[in-house]
Amino acid sequence: MSRISSTFARIKGEGKKALIPFITAGDPGKGYTVPLMHALVEAGVDIIELGVPFSDPMADGPVIQRASERALANKVSLRDVLAMVAEFRKTNTDTPVVLMGYANPVEHMGYEAFAKAASEAGVDGVLTVDIPPEESLGVADVFKAHGLDPIFLLSPTTPESRVAEVAKAAGGFVYYVSLKGVTGSANLDTEDVARKIAMIRSHCALPVGVGFGIRDAQTAEAIARIADAVVVGSRIVGEIESAPEDEVVTRVKYLVEALRRGVDAAAK
């Protein structure tokens, strides 16, 4: 069983829901990422999504775009991100790490070479936003062959007829994007999300994570009532952006502890 699957199994056994934070690797500087990852674990997160910076983050809103630009200004490459994961793994062998990014840096490295290096570094799952299952033929298999879970998105516009197809290609969990738009958008309709998740579950046995638009303990709690995992990105990245550099780690930890309480409140 993969580290992601066993994590979901453990959480389910505890009657809880997973909290998955997103941070961009190398933001605000290369040296911050590994300490931030450890702080996230201390704050009680279950899985870490690590953003691989890209020059053209088409699916991201302004907050994560700026994080990507800061990381690229620090010359953070895909190889650097893998080195950060390897560093994290020296002292943490339990918390799954999912890389989230765009196709081109991975394509440029070569899917096989990337999958091998990522697996060796201790990466557990890979979400390439702009590779839908149709284009991943071969790619998802390469990832799976190296023990990496290919994570795919589902969205409010995904027709029901497509959900099973996506689920077949996916591993670990599926990530339901709770609204039409880019990362960081507002206006979450939890009732609509609940209906969609019920539909997804009828075609997909994997755990369902929900992200986009979760900004505080209240929305985290509302989503935790209906999904298996709550993904929070822009809110955390925004905190990294606004915090003075010497307070980045403590401020993020404080914020994520509150999100954790929100998620756990749903279980009570």
Binding site: I131, E135, S155
Partner: peptide, 21 residues
């Protein structure tokens, strides 16, 4: 049928746009 010119072309977009395309 999926937009490939040999190895080129295709549909490399986030899931939200798949139905629109």
């Amino acid at each position: 049928s999926r937009g490939h010119f040999g190895p080129y072309g295709g549909i490399f977009v986030a899931e939200t746009l798949m139905a629109a395309l």
